[in-house]
């Protein structure tokens, strides 16, 4: 009882800070939107785009900081352009898209680190972008997050069926008159916005996990697109809340704790899926054994009856034959 009271008091204290409320709102919105966008990206095997974009975002921020330019004003357009470039690379089957994305990620990171070193070491702001910090979010971030996340949610709800069609079968969607290239570009653009907004809270190195983890976890639990989408959204929100509270209580880095919460959720989903599968297999084997037992019993009964009937028939035929033979013989035939 006492420990629960302490927990609730601590939790109450958590949200008495303005920066925590800001982090909560931004984090919830970014987690939710990243999970929704992530469903399409993961299922199309484009999740590396998110990873690549976060690295590009970091590089752009570092250059902006080195040149004393406004971070978001530089980062947003650069990451947007990179999103369309990475999408093009992923769609082009003739290119080694995974290698190309790796190349762009590493180059962006290298440019960022070089820009920082020229300026004279890693400052706090850049470190926040690299590893994330709840203290780093500003009111501008809050307003931007609310606006962008509302756009993402609206786009996702309105275009849900089209996003499904393009994710499931791009060729069919294109043949049906859907602008699949436009939809893909929209998804890539929204991913870029989410990455840029979430980087302060989660860190450039960890933000892509918000895109990847919820969908991967949901895939263990459900097998319909709607189910995966809803489950991923719920998991993302729950893991963010758990991660934020645990990080506050234990003093661990927020971004990393949220990723660990997602990892734990993934492992729980994986284990529950395996247990369910094993239980179903066990029940199936039991049902098979029962059915086989019943069939064997039936077959034995039938065999017994058939043998008996066959023996009677043979005896009768033999008798008849013998009688016939005897009669014919008696008639002297």
């Amino acid at each position: 009882m006492g420990s629960w009271a302490t927990f609730w008091t601590t939790l109450g204290g958590l949200f008495s800070y303005e920066f925590m409320v800001r982090a909560l709102v931004i984090g919830l919105l970014v987690s939710l939107c990243a999970a929704l966008i992530g469903v399409s990206l993961v299922l199309k095997r484009y999740s590396m785009i998110g990873d690549g974009l976060s690295h590009v975002g970091f590089g752009a921020l570092a250059v902006a900081a080195a040149l004393n330019w406004a971070p978001l004003a530089v980062c947003l357009p650069v990451v947007l352009v990179a999103a369309f470039l990475l999408l093009r690379l992923s769609e082009n089957s003739r290119l080694r898209s995974d290698a190309a994305i790796g190349l762009i990620s590493a180059s962006a990171l290298a440019i960022g680190v070089t820009a920082i070193s020229i300026r004279g070491g890693v400052n706090t702001d850049l470190e926040n972008y690299l590893f994330g910090s709840i203290l780093a979010t500003t009111n501008v971030d809050l307003v931007l997050s609310v606006v962008v996340c509302l756009v993402v949610l609206l786009a996702f709800v309105v275009l849900y069926h089209r996003i499904f069609a393009v994710t499931f079968d791009q060729d069919f969607a294109a043949a049906s008159g859907m602008k699949s290239a436009v939809l893909n570009a929209l998804i890539a653009g929204l991913t870029a916005l989410i990455i840029v907004l979430g980087m302060r809270l989660m860190g450039a190195l960890l933000i892509s996990s918000l895109i990847i983890f919820p969908t991967l976890s949901a895939l263990w639990l459900t097998r319909s697109f709607k189910g995966v989408t809803v489950t991923a959204a719920i998991l993302a929100v729950v893991c963010f809340l758990v991660g934020l509270v645990v990080s506050y209580m234990s003093g661990t880095p927020t971004g990393a704790t949220i990723v660990i919460a997602n990892l734990v959720a993934f492992l729980i989903c994986y284990a529950s899926s395996k247990i369910r599968l094993a239980t179903q297999k066990g029940a199936g084997r039991e049902a098979q054994r029962t059915a086989a037992g019943e069939a064997r019993g039936g077959a034995l009964g039938a065999t017994g009856r058939e043998t008996e009937r066959g023996a009677l028939l043979s005896a009768g035929e033999a008798r008849g034959g013998a009688l016939g033979a005897t009669g014919r013989e008696a008639k002297g035939e």
Binding site: L43, R162, F164, A175, R223, G227
Partner: peptide, 29 residues
């Protein structure tokens, strides 16, 4: 008025979707 059945990709075979979701997507045209 044109129905199309493209070649099936490897990714589709285990795609998490209900049959209803897949067939309904044909109506989007």
């Amino acid at each position: 008025s044109i129905g199309y059945l493209p070649q099936q990709h490897a990714l589709q075979k285990n795609f998490p979707a209900s049959v209803e979701e897949v067939v309904l997507s044909g109506r989007l045209a």
